[in-house]
Simulated scan of single mutants.
Amino acid sequence: MTTKLETLQLALQTALGEGAAISAALGEVTVVVKAADYIRSMTALRDTPALAFEQMIDLCGVDYSEYGEGTYEGPRFAVVVHLLSLTHNWRVRVRVFCPDDDMPLVESITPIWRAANWFEREAFDLFGILFDGHGDLRRILTDYGFIGHPFRKDFPISGYVEMRYDPDQKRVIYQPVTIEPRENIPRVIREETYGTK
């Protein structure tokens, strides 16, 4: 007797072919597809009756630059999409790596699932991942003049600029960061009677 997870894996392998790496762990199925096969694979996941992933639940960017404590050698950026089939009551995670670390780019899935619109804008804003074919790819969470992408692992903790209200000019102004970087070392309390009084 095959389990529901095994049935899903078999249906995925049949629909996506050899171009997809399918794995299961902790009751969840992950599919890794190549950037060149991304749109074809996503369309197959939606349109194949044996899969019927009608709903895109989530899409996010990932920066793997320090993954595995710096031992990771693969592409730096990936897009991870979570899909739900209401028909079959199962979920799948799809991961696609951006082939170029200097200009991370994958196709937009907004023609397949319109719900991907703001998720892709968020991944662009926070990670700098570009989505080819997206109709309105602009920042969604950071300010209009923001420089950089704050969820990248190489983005400085304090940022580049800070904004504050200037009472003399009666407006918000931007200025270089004035915070001096420092390392916080927690104080270790070694008193034997600490907390008993």
Rank of each mutant, 00 (worst) to 15 (best):
M1N: 11
M1V: 12
T2C: 00
T3K: 01
T3I: 02
T7C: 05
L10H: 13
A11E: 09
Q13P: 01
Q13V: 01
L16R: 12
E18Y: 03
L26S: 12
G27D: 04
V32C: 11
V33G: 05
A36F: 09
I39A: 12
M42Y: 09
L45I: 08
T48M: 01
A50T: 15
F53L: 07
F53M: 07
D58N: 15
L59T: 03
C60H: 13
G61K: 04
E66Q: 15
T71Q: 13
Y72C: 09
F77T: 07
V81P: 00
H82A: 15
R91E: 08
R95Y: 02
F97W: 05
P104A: 01
E107H: 10
P111M: 00
I112W: 00
E120Q: 03
A123E: 02
G128D: 05
H134G: 05
H134R: 07
G135S: 10
D143E: 14
Y144C: 01
G145H: 10
F146P: 03
I147R: 01
I147A: 00
I147P: 00
P150M: 04
K153H: 10
K153R: 13
D154V: 12
I157W: 07
Y160W: 10
Y160S: 03
M163H: 14
R164W: 02
R164G: 07
D168R: 12
R171P: 08
V172N: 09
V172L: 15
I173E: 14
I173S: 12
P176D: 04
T178C: 04
I179V: 10
E180H: 10
E183N: 07
V188F: 13
R190C: 06
E192T: 11
T193Y: 13
T196W: 01
K197I: 05
K197M: 07
